[in-house]
Design a protein around this nucleic acid. Sequence first.
DNA 1: ATTATCTATAGATCTATAGATAATGC
DNA 2: ATTATCTATAGATCTATAGATAATGC
Lengths: 223, 223
Amino acid sequence: MSEETTLKPVRRRKAEQRAESLEQILDAAEYLFSVDGLNGVTIQDVAERVGVHKTLIHYYFKDKRSLFEAVFARRAGVSSGRRMEALERYEAEAGDSPTVEGALHAFLDTDLDLYIGGGEKLMNYASFCARISNTPEGAVLFDEHFDAVVLKLISVLKRALPDTSEEDIFWGYHFVTGALMNTLARTGRIDRLSGGLCHSDDFEAVKKRIAKFMADGFLGLGL
Amino acid sequence: MSEETTLKPVRRRKAEQRAESLEQILDAAEYLFSVDGLNGVTIQDVAERVGVHKTLIHYYFKDKRSLFEAVFARRAGVSSGRRMEALERYEAEAGDSPTVEGALHAFLDTDLDLYIGGGEKLMNYASFCARISNTPEGAVLFDEHFDAVVLKLISVLKRALPDTSEEDIFWGYHFVTGALMNTLARTGRIDRLSGGLCHSDDFEAVKKRIAKFMADGFLGLGL
DNA sequence: ATTATCTATAGATCTATAGATAATGC
DNA sequence: ATTATCTATAGATCTATAGATAATGC
């Protein structure tokens, strides 16, 4: 009896073990996919990075594509949820006169803050998103997970720009998301191009500029 | 004697044959890489699309990566050369007072025109570039082939914006290239998001807006 | 005599499954 | 009893090379 009560469980409980294995697999896949893309990563690469046998990946995920989609889905809800809240908060506080810049701060800065404050793993997710955003398979995942929050942004922009055509606003958004994805990609190109003046990892520098820069672009549309 | 002069050569001359095979292989690879990326395409896929035996690809290219780099290099010089000329022409005509919008028209519209007027193959190249622009391997190819023309653009922007910091100008360029790459990618996302109001293939619509939009962003930097 | 293309093949993965083993759960 | 992990393996590719064949070149 005393043995049972003094001994701690030698191993984690199964639920914990499952959760931990899943998280490790997703973390490893997130990193590897962000660097080499869906087809540049093998299931074995993922297993080796975690330190488990390759067939364990199939125990948790039907196939490579499900793993890929799970990597995307795991954090997409967080990113989209936070931005949705920020937009709603901004709408409430701006009342009848929302501004383009205000809406873009809510949309862009909130997401950049997620990565800035989230450590290496969130930065890997950012690169992962950017990498797939310019691909056909990736774009449909964006449709699925981000349409709601993007259409929310569009609706606020429309109220802020009542004289701008819907088409202009959609193209403006298209420019905004391109700039954001180029940031999340962190390829190191801006570092080399600028001779070290700018850094791919410096999301604070982007946050300081992007909303205002893009807002000024929107304000001149259709003039 | 008369036979020899009247008979056309049954097959192309070797030089022509070589040039034609190379072009067909590069076209096929360009299309396939634009859709599925470096690792999503096999040498056999390329050969099948051309209609030749898979080993012929190795006859012309050392390995898959050389083929990939050759696809990039084939048109990078054209794109970069045209924009360099356009920037020099603009500088000459603008004299002492170049504008941000003028420089961006030269840089962006010239490239969009290349794809607009170039048919399907050039559009495939555009998607290929966009797809790899957000990857580490792709970014170094951009360094190699596009640094010169981008630094030329930066130099004109500096003259147009003497009171704006170099860092601000580099970040502005970072936003511009993100928006351009998102355009070249043609994932169809803007079509679906806008309910058919905008079209990924409509580079004219982008050309109508992008230079002015980005120029307005630059003008507000550092205020 | 040289170049373009194809045949055959070695060697290395890679995905995915079936089934065994080793843990935890009750 | 159930779940987590590993062993063994089938079957399918994929890359890259060596060497044969079929064209063109002079």
